[in-house]
Amino acid sequence: IHSPLADVIREELILVEPDYSSKNEVLDGLADLLTKGGYVKDGFLLDIYKREIMGPTLIEGKYAIPHGNPENVIKPAIAIAILKDPIDWWEKNAVDLVFMLAVNEESKEMVLELYDLFKNPDFIAKLRNSKTPADVKGIMLELLL
Rank of each mutant, 00 (worst) to 15 (best):
H67S: 06
P18Y: 01
N129P: 01
F123Y: 12
S21L: 04
A31K: 05
A102C: 12
V103H: 01
P70Q: 07
L145H: 11
L145K: 15
L34V: 07
D32I: 00
T57I: 07
P76A: 12
E25I: 02
N104M: 04
I80L: 06
L97A: 04
V8S: 03
E71P: 11
Y49H: 14
G38L: 06
I48E: 06
K108F: 05
I65G: 00
M140P: 05
H67V: 04
I65N: 00
D42L: 05
S130N: 07
G29H: 05
N93E: 13
G55Y: 02
I124H: 10
I82F: 10
K137D: 04
G61N: 07
A6T: 14
Y49L: 15
R51L: 07
G38M: 04
L141M: 11
K126I: 00
N93Q: 12
K92V: 13
E91G: 13
I78C: 04
N93T: 10
K75S: 12
I59F: 09
Y49S: 06
K50L: 13
L145T: 12
K137G: 02
D122G: 11
E52F: 04
V26T: 09
L143R: 02
V26K: 05
A94I: 02
A64C: 03
E11K: 14
L141T: 11
G61E: 02
K131E: 12
R10W: 00
T57G: 06
T35I: 08
E11D: 11
R10K: 14
Y39K: 03
D28H: 09
G37C: 03
I87W: 03
E91I: 14
K137S: 06
D96P: 10
G55P: 12
M140Y: 00
E17M: 09
D7L: 12
L13P: 02
E91A: 13
G138I: 06
L127Y: 04
L58F: 00
Y39M: 04
L117Q: 08
S21I: 13
D47S: 15
E52I: 10
K84V: 08
I87V: 15
D7K: 14
G55I: 05
I48C: 07
K84Y: 03
P76E: 14
L114K: 09
S3Q: 10
A134K: 15
L141E: 13
G43M: 06
L5P: 09
L30E: 00
E91H: 13
E25H: 09
G138K: 15
